[in-house]
Simulated assay, not measured.
Amino acid sequence: MIRIETLATGSTGNCYLIDDDRTQLLLECGIRFKDIRRKLNFRTSSVAGILISHSHKDHCKGVSSALDASLDVYMSGATASEIGISHNRIRLYENKKQFRIGTFTILPFDVQHDVENHGFLIQSDNGSKLLFATDTYYVKYKFKGLSHLMIECNYSRKILDENVESGRVPQFLANRIIGSHFSLENVLDFLKANDLSKVQEIHLLHLSDSNSDEGMFKQEVQSATGKLVYVP
């Protein structure tokens, strides 16, 4: 079993804790590190590492302070270059090459965004298998044997179109959202295309403040999958 705790999600910052009772990892570090420490009751010394998917500030804001606190931070070479950071605690990963952190085996895989971005397939020695994917409009890979999903569900195309028509969202911004984020419709297609037979939990992440509907998203995904769905 993997325990998932959302410390922050959305355009103002993203950070998630996963714990298999032997190893703790942070996925993203997009809020101030002192806020992460506070949310973890100042027990960050038990965190074995931090995975960073890409260079946008809402996913890496706290990286410098985390490094200075002697935490290992894992990112791609392109992401480190885009952030403009170097440190002896940075650990570079490569696309589709597995690596280990404690009891977790992590496989980064490329996803589609407006900068280089990676999702993570994370398998615990206890048999749990978690998929994490955010800030992408498309995931081209299929997965088997998943037990947990953490996946972006940023907007509904219907809500976004209504906001464009009403003038609440300018067309240029809508085009950027469509070209860089996962919609409810794409999430449902992705879930349909993958093996969910062992899935215990689905966590919908990074909902837009204005182009989403938390209750509707949860109901739609639950109805489509029959799984336990969380919207943090």
Rank of each mutant, 00 (worst) to 15 (best):
G77R: 13
P108N: 07
T12L: 14
F190H: 04
P108R: 06
I2W: 04
T134M: 09
D35L: 14
D125N: 12
D189P: 00
K144G: 11
Y137Q: 09
E152K: 03
G77F: 02
I36S: 09
T225P: 02
A8P: 02
R91I: 11
T136Q: 15
C29K: 06
L51Y: 02
I122F: 15
N194K: 12
T103E: 15
D110L: 14
L25S: 05
D68Y: 03
Y74P: 00
N154D: 14
F132T: 08
L67S: 06
Y138A: 14
L25G: 03
A224Y: 08
S166G: 08
C29F: 04
N194M: 13
V221C: 05
Q98T: 14
R43M: 12
L160K: 01
A193C: 06
I106M: 01
K61M: 11
I90L: 14
S45K: 12
H113G: 04
D135Y: 13
A133L: 10
L205P: 00
E185Q: 09
K144T: 12
E116M: 07
S147M: 11
K61A: 12
T23Q: 08
D72K: 10
H203R: 10
F182W: 02
A8G: 08
F42R: 08
H54Q: 14
H59Y: 03
V63W: 07
Y137W: 10
I36W: 08
E162N: 14
H54S: 13
L71M: 12
D58T: 02
T225E: 09
R89T: 04
T12N: 14
L67D: 05
F217D: 10
V187C: 11
I202S: 09
S55I: 03
N154I: 00
T103Q: 13
V169Q: 08
D21V: 00
V229Y: 04
F42I: 01
Y138T: 09
V231I: 15
P170D: 12
P170S: 07
E5N: 13
K129Y: 03
S76R: 00
T23Y: 05
N175T: 07
S128N: 13
T225N: 07
L26D: 07
